[in-house]
Design a protein around this nucleic acid. Sequence first.
DNA 1: AATGCGTGGTC
DNA 2: TGACCAAGCAT
Length: 379
Amino acid sequence: MEKWSAATIREFRRTLLAWYDQEGRNLPWRRDHEPYHVWVSEIMLQQTQVNTVIPYYENFMATFPTVTALANAEQADLLKAWQGLGYYSRARNLQRAAQQLVTDYHGEWPRTAAGLADLVGIGPYTAGAIASIAFGEAVPAVDGNAFRVFSRLLLIDDDIAKPQTRKIFEQVIQPIVDPERPGAFNQAIMDLGSSYMTAKNSDPAHSPVREFDASYREDRVDEFPVKTKAPRPKLMPYYGLIVHSPAGYLMVQRDANQMLTGYWTFPLVIQAGLREAVPVDTPTLETDIAALEQQFSTDYQLPISLTTVSGQPVSHTYTHQRWQVKLLVAELATTPALTFYPGKWVPAAEIRALPLPKVQEKIMTRYQNQGHPQAFPKN
DNA sequence: AATGCGTGGTC
DNA sequence: TGACCAAGCAT
């Protein structure tokens, strides 16, 4: 691992910030240093690229312009504003933290990273980012960019997938952060990490800090950062039930024990769970359909007759799961009461007003493309 | 410490 | 198409 002298650190800061002042990106959340603006942008940017975030950020600020507005927002409006951005607990935690700020903090922001980290959804990285950018505290903001940039500059070969590695980087970066301009310093590292020092197709030869880049000097850029790879997503076969009556489509809101909490989908049944509830010797599509029909009839007092939708299952891959959703349809002549079923009938024209996850949109698109082109009008 | 949690872009 | 990556956090 490289070790920089005090003089090298001073020269690195000067070089980095001169480049940032000239070439730093003009981003919507950089128009001022309002803590609310910095906070919302940093939460949206977690594991999400800048170009994806920009339109969401603009819409979010127009819809929820202040901490108070966010604290008082309807959750459905919040989830709709976050729809498509992913990692939806971020949105729910954002509102919880806004409510914390209003009620427990009387609207006064903690002005240090340590204090900010007490708010739900704000971890070590985001605390450092807000503290440095909004309040000028000289602390590092160690995200994926910082891992990548400093592992290359200093030949740090610790595995960044391991939690304990964060501490090493924080200790290494802390003395390098410019105490005069910590926010600009941290943002400059991020801009560097998304331009000359990217994960793939990096261009270290033209980097403004190439003279400080030990990995470039040794032609070992591709060796850094060291990161063990994640396991494969687990295959999860589902049935997706498109149940239609004169009142509309049967929809369910996902509860707090499931992923996609608060978002709406058609009923989704895990195939393995279905066979657990109604065991048969050799499960087939036919036995599964019979089991589903029986379950709806007896458990929910919802008699349905299911038929298959032609085509391959709808496939949707998450970080840790790969869903394959086989679509089944039931057309009802009358509308049964949903006394024992935790869902609701939603008129076709109102479905798109609900917060929907991507997999639900894929299912709707598939169904429309299989002979029901006007099933879900966009208004 | 290890795992769960979304989506879109890129090669 | 699959694999990998992108401004992480909670539990």
